[in-house]
């Protein structure tokens, strides 16, 4: 069983929902990133989603765009991201790690080579924003070969017929995009999310995690009530960046504090 499947199974047994945290690898540098990943796990993250910096992050709002730019100042490229995960694995062999990014760096490295080195480093899954099901088959074949999951997105605009095709190809979990917009958008509607999650569940037994627009304990709690997991990205990146003006320790602490707060919000559902 993959780390991701195992983690969702454990959580289900405990009656808890998954907290998936997003940070950009190398924001603001690799060392801080590594500390932040461990801190987020210590404060309650269940799955780590690690952003691969790209020069043209088309699906991101301003907060995460700027994080990509900060990481690229230090030329933190895909090879370095994979090294970062390997370093993380030296002391944490349990927490699932998925890479989220754009097709080009992966394509440039070569799908087969990426699958080999990423799985050797302990990466569990890949989510490429700009590889819809129509274009994902070649990389999915390579990921399957090494036992990595291929995470696919379902959007509010995805018609049912298409949704069926997507979830058939998905593995690990289904990532449900909560709203029409870029990451960090401010118009989350939990009723719309509930409907969409229900629509996905009609066609798959895979866990459903919801991302985009979840920024605090309250919104996380509302989404966790209807999904198997919540993804928090821009809010964490923004909190770390703001606190980071006072140095890397402050950035790590701020991200950790927000993770703990959101964890509490989610877990208050169970009690």
């Amino acid at each position: 069983m993959s780390r991701i499947a195992q983690r969702f199974a454990q959580l289900k047994e405990q009656g808890r929902k998954a907290l998936v945290t997003y940070s950009v690898a190398g924001d603001p540098d690799a060392e801080t990133s590594l500390k932040m990943l461990h801190e987020m796990v210590a404060r309650g993250a269940d799955i780590l989603e690690v952003g691969v910096p790209f020069s043209d992050p088309m699906a991101e709002g301003p907060v995460i765009q700027q994080a990509h730019e900060r990481a690229l100042v230090n030329r933190l490229t895909l090879t370095a991201v994979i090294e970062l995960v390997a370093a993380f694995r030296a002391t944490d062999n349990q927490t699932p790690v998925l890479l989220m990014g754009y097709a080009n760096p992966v394509e440039h490295m070569g799908y087969a080579h990426f699958a080999d080195v990423a799985s050797a480093a302990g990466v569990d899954a890949l989510l490429t924003v700009d590889l819809p099901p129509e274009e994902v088959a070649p990389i999915k074949a390579e990921l399957s070969r090494v036992g990595m999951d291929c995470i696919l997105l379902v959007a509010p605009t995805t018609p049912d017929a298409r949704l069926v095709k997507i979830v058939k190809q998905a593995s690990g979990f289904v990532y449900s995009v909560s709203l029409k917009g870029v990451t960090g958008s401010g118009h989350l509607d939990s009723n719309v999310v509930a409907e969409q999650v229900a629509r996905i569940r009609q066609h798959t037994a895979l866990p459903v995690a919801v991302g985009f627009g979840i920024r605090d304990a309250t919104s996380a709690r509302a989404i966790a009530a209807v999904a198997d997991g919540v993804v928090v990205g821009s809010a964490l990146v923004a909190a770390a960046a703001e606190a980071g003006q006072g140095g890397p320790e402050a950035a790590v602490a701020a991200a950790g504090a927000l993770v703990a707060e959101i964890r509490q919000g989610i877990d208050s559902l169970a009690s």
């Binding site: 088309m58 590889l131 819809p132 379902v154 959007a155 605009t157 995805t158 995009v177």
Partner: peptide, 12 residues
């Protein structure tokens, strides 16, 4: 060529 875009745009 192809369609390398986020899922939200696919139906458009």
């Amino acid at each position: 060529g192809g369609k390398f875009v986020a899922e939200t745009l696919m139906s458009a």
